[in-house]
Nucleic acid binder design. Structure first.
Lengths: 249, 249
DNA sequence: ATAATGTCTGTTGTCTGACAAGTAAAGGGC
DNA sequence: GCCCTTTACTTGTCAGACAACAGACATTAT
């Protein structure tokens, strides 16, 4: 019996192959470049036009390509691919690393306790279930830039696991690496708040200065909230942006 | 000769029809529900299976559907469809209307002048070009909720056009209706700021209270910035959120 | 009996070839 | 010169067929 246990088949399906090949083909092309006609391209990539079309349509949906009936298919703006804003689900940690910054975790505090009513609401739970609370301040070059708090139901994460899996600051990354629970989407609310005395001290800002507050719910495939996180960011240190496409175009 | 001049044809293409029909069909279904097989569904919707498949694949791409080879197509999590956050490019105006609120434009001020250095930077222009500046305060039920400023190069919009096209508060909507310039994406930076005396007065908040500042660049297809807008939002009145999917899943 | 194997059914995935519809530019008549 | 027609090219849609896959069931060998 040969061990298998892979979810990635050795022989990728034509569609996946075409996705990769087409992406590689597009990458170096300047925006506005016209692609070869579908029949030609299909022959080049060794698939049928139908399969190619399905891939091209998803690329158009993503904003990588622009299709014009009777005219052709063109490479669209490259802008959204270059910089990754928060349109992709990534941890603050990965984001910072991409920017070439080194983040450190300070004032890490991990405890298990019952959820407060507000936290239970964030977790979309009717009861005050047992949760793991992770508090910490993120610093860049010695300066505090964010205050993070994650609330995770004990079903998904326990204190012992956190130490075993060498936690480096991100519950999201931990879940992704572990592959469990299966994550689907997150919803982040964005609010501006004034720093009270507590945050002023923790983040080294003056009281009353504006902070960006992000309240994020991370959902699993079965639509449970597996992580409710509240973060406060110091303006100027971290910049958030959203890329949006014109619907349908 | 019949006047046409619409960019929305009366007879929607089969694909668009199927998109709408399928979306309507999915909406009431609970997550996990299996859809009819493709041939059946295609017949029901009156299109070929190829066309249906292109639509279904984009829906899967959006996370609305889940497809399993050899098994079937299923309704995925409904969460992202329910509320539309700022992941879709929509004007504040349309957003408010969807929430069932009625917005009013107050303190409208339109002028043509040279761009300031900061504005030119926002427009990604090296020169201090001539621009149309639109200032106004948005109110809901008499209360101010947002202060908006749009800076548009005169090439794309002139003062006269604004009056002709019965401007109701949104440059984005105007461009979309007019179909010119062709829009591709927008990039919005999100920052928290404290209200200075000017904004405190305009938005009826106390000085120093936190405001959400959005700086958005709206790009056309040829990657020019056609609208640089700066908005200040009063917390509590408007809530922004972002939905993000786990990459690829 | 039980476990492995084969078979059958229903589904999505892919292919082929054809025609329809839209766009833009070349060509022709005035 | 100007306007209309024609033409070539591209994407959009269609129809029908077969392949690949997953799961349930029956069959067989041990």
């Amino acid at each position: 019996m040969i061990e298998e246990g892979f979810s990635h088949p050795k022989v990728r399906s034509p569609r996946v192959q075409v996705e990769e090949a087409l992406a590689a083909m597009i990458r170096p092309l300047p925006p506005g470049t016209q692609l070869p006609p579908e029949p030609t391209l299909a022959k080049q990539l060794g698939v049928s036009r139908a399969t190619l079309r399905e891939v091209m349509r998803t690329f158009a949906e993503r904003g990588i390509l622009t299709r014009r009936h009777g005219v052709g298919t063109f490479v669209a703006s490259r802008i959204p691919v270059l910089e990754s804003g928060i349109e992709i689900l990534e941890s603050i940690d990965s984001l910072a690393r991409q920017m070439g910054l080194e983040t450190h975790v300070a004032a890490l505090e991990v405890l298990e306790r019952k959820a407060t009513p507000k936290e239970a609401e964030g977790l979309e739970s009717k009861e005050l279930i047992d949760v793991l609370v992770i508090n910490r301040v993120i610093t860049v070059e010695g300066k505090p830039v964010a205050d993070l708090r994650d609330i995770v139901p004990l079903d998904y994460l326990r204190k012992e696991e956190l130490e075993r899996e060498d936690f480096h600051g991100s519950v999201l990354d931990l879940f992704l690496e572990r592959g469990n629970p299966m994550l689907s989407i997150s919803r982040t609310d964005i609010i501006a708040v004034s720093a009270d005395a507590k945050f002023a001290r923790r983040l080294h800002v003056s009281r009353g200065s504006a902070l960006l507050k992000l309240a994020a719910k991370l959902y699993s495939y079965d639509e449970k909230v597996v992580d409710y996180s509240i973060s406060y960011f110091v303006p100027g240190q971290f910049r958030f942006h959203v890329m949006r496409r014109v619907t349908h175009a």
